[in-house]
C-alpha cells in the first residue's frame, strides 16, 4: 500500500518535472521571437563577402594603363586540378616573347580551389567576389578572354581589397602587332610587356622558382602529362 502511494507520488513528481522541462523548452523557443532574424535578403541585398572570397575567376588589367597582366606562363593551366583553364598563346617572331591569343576558363568544371590564383606571378588571374554564374547551357559557362577580363576600375578595386602589390607601370612602347583572334584590346597590349621578372610577393604566392616555370616558355597547346583526369566531385 505504502509502496503504491510512494510510486504514485514519484509518478506525479516525474510528470511535473517533465512538464516543467517542456515548459522551459517552449519558453526558450518562444523567447526567440524577440530576436532579430538572421536571414539575409539575398537577391535584394548582396551579401558582404570577404576580399579573399573564392568566386568566379577573372583576369585583372593594370589599373593605371589598362593592359592585360597575363604573361602566358601557363602556370595556372598546369596547376589546375580540374583542367578547366585553356590558354592559347603564340610565340611572337619579332620579340621572341609569348603573346596571349585567348584565355578560356570552363566554370562548369572549375571547383574554385583558387590554386591558379596562388601560382600566378603577376596577380593576373584572381578570384572575384562574384558568384552568380548560373546559366542555361554548359557551353555558356566557358568564359573567354573578353568575358574574363575585368575593367580598370574593377581591377583597381581587387588590387586594393586583396592587398596585392600594383604592377609596376611600364612605359613600354606599344609595338602591338594585330592580334587576329581576340577582339580584346588589352590582350593585344599585353604581349610586349611579358614581364618575367617576379614582383615582390607576399606570404603565400611567392615567385615560382622550381621547375614549374621553366617549361612555361615552350609553346604547347595544353596537355601537361603530369596530371590525370579531372576530378569528379
Amino acid at each position: 500500500m505504502f509502496n503504491l502511494i510512494g510510486s504514485a507520488i514519484n509518478g506525479v513528481k516525474h510528470a511535473l518535472g517533465g512538464l516543467y522541462q517542456v515548459k522551459r523548452g517552449l519558453e526558450t523557443v518562444a523567447m526567440h521571437t524577440w530576436r532579430e532574424p538572421t536571414t539575409e535578403a539575398y537577391p535584394d541585398k548582396a551579401p558582404e563577402l570577404p576580399p579573399h572570397f573564392r568566386g568566379r575567376l577573372a583576369l585583372t588589367v593594370n589599373p593605371e594603363t589598362g593592359e592585360n597582366l597575363c604573361i602566358s606562363c601557363r602556370q595556372c593551366e598546369r596547376v589546375c586540378p580540374d583542367k578547366c583553364i585553356e590558354i592559347t598563346a603564340n610565340k611572337s617572331t619579332e620579340t621572341n616573347k609569348l603573346e596571349l591569343i585567348d584565355f578560356k576558363i570552363d566554370h562548369g568544371l572549375c571547383m574554385f580551389c583558387g590554386l591558379c590564383t596562388e601560382v600566378c606571378p603577376t596577380y593576373c588571374i584572381i578570384n572575384t567576389n562574384d558568384f552568380e554564374m548560373a546559366d542555361y547551357t554548359r557551353s555558356s559557362l566557358i568564359y573567354d578572354l573578353k568575358k574574363l577580363t575585368l575593367t580598370q576600375e574593377e581591377s583597381a578595386y581587387y588590387f586594393a581589397a586583396k592587398e596585392m602589390p600594383l604592377p609596376k607601370p611600364k612605359p613600354a612602347k606599344p609595338a602591338a602587332p594585330a592580334a587576329g583572334a581576340a577582339a580584346a584590346k588589352p590582350a593585344a597590349e599585353a604581349k610586349p610587356t611579358a614581364t618575367v621578372s617576379p614582383k615582390p610577393a607576399p606570404e603565400s604566392a611567392k615567385a615560382p622558382e622550381t621547375t614549374a616555370d621553366k617549361p612555361a616558355k615552350e609553346v604547347e597547346k595544353k596537355e601537361s602529362p603530369s596530371t590525370d583526369t579531372p576530378s569528379v566531385n
Binding site: V79, P81, L115, S226, T227, D228, S231, V232, N233
Partner: peptide, 22 residues
C-alpha cells in the same frame, strides 16, 4: 565512392591539398 586515395596518387601534392577537404 570517389577514389580519393587513387586521386591523391595521381595529383601533385599542391593539387591534392585542395581536393582533400571534400
Amino acid at each position: 565512392h570517389r577514389a580519393q586515395e587513387w586521386q591523391g596518387q595521381n595529383r601533385t601534392w599542391f593539387q591534392y591539398q585542395a581536393l582533400i577537404d571534400r
